[in-house]
């Protein structure tokens, strides 16, 4: 009898509806209005790569050791350098990073012995062309400049 009554009065469905309505309260809103409010990504976020420079004199920290290029599973980093006869060190000439093939695994960052290559918190990496995803040394040092729209 009780079972029949529960069936007629749709008790089980009402129970579910109660949950639905409980979650209607404005406290439960979790949607982010993306372009207006930008998500704050974690400190360790692995986003756009950056080639760090010395803040005092603007010289690159990269010592052209090629370890990042060796560590990369996709072989997408190309480092070229010339030998400086005075300091007996290698000077960085070009540094190319193909973001279109990057899977942001962080192995290059781990391999870098001088913290020159770093994955940053920038995550807006879209470009209009495929070539735009291949970053040269200038782009890696400056970082991406995504458009900020006004609302």
């Amino acid at each position: 009898m009780r079972k029949l009554l529960r069936k007629i009065f749709l008790v089980d469905l009402m129970q579910g509806l109660r949950v639905t309505f409980r979650n209607q309260s404005p406290k439960c809103i979790v949607t982010e209005q993306y372009p207006q409010e930008r998500p704050k990504v974690a400190e360790r976020y692995r986003g756009a790569p950056r080639l760090n420079t010395n803040p005092d004199n603007g010289e690159t920290l990269c010592i052209s050791c090629n370890l990042c290029a060796v560590a990369c599973p996709e072989h997408l980093i190309v480092v070229t350098s010339v030998r400086n006869e005075q300091t007996k060190r290698k000077d960085l000439t070009t540094f190319t990073y193909d973001l279109s093939r990057c899977m942001f695994c962080g192995l290059c960052e781990d391999a870098c012995p001088v913290d020159a290559l770093e994955l940053t918190q920038d995550f807006e990496l879209a470009s209009y062309t495929r070539e735009g995803a291949i970053w040269d040394r200038q782009m890696l040092e400056d970082g991406p400049k995504p458009a900020r729209y006004k609302f």
């Binding site: 979790v30 360790r44 976020y45 692995r46 899977m103």
Partner: peptide, 22 residues
């Protein structure tokens, strides 16, 4: 998905990626 977001936030804080974490 709302609850999964909390787990992904823990991953993001820990290793920097949310889905393919490595």
């Amino acid at each position: 998905f709302r609850e999964r977001e909390e787990i992904l936030n823990i991953y993001e804080n820990y290793c920097g990626a949310r889905l393919t974490t490595h």
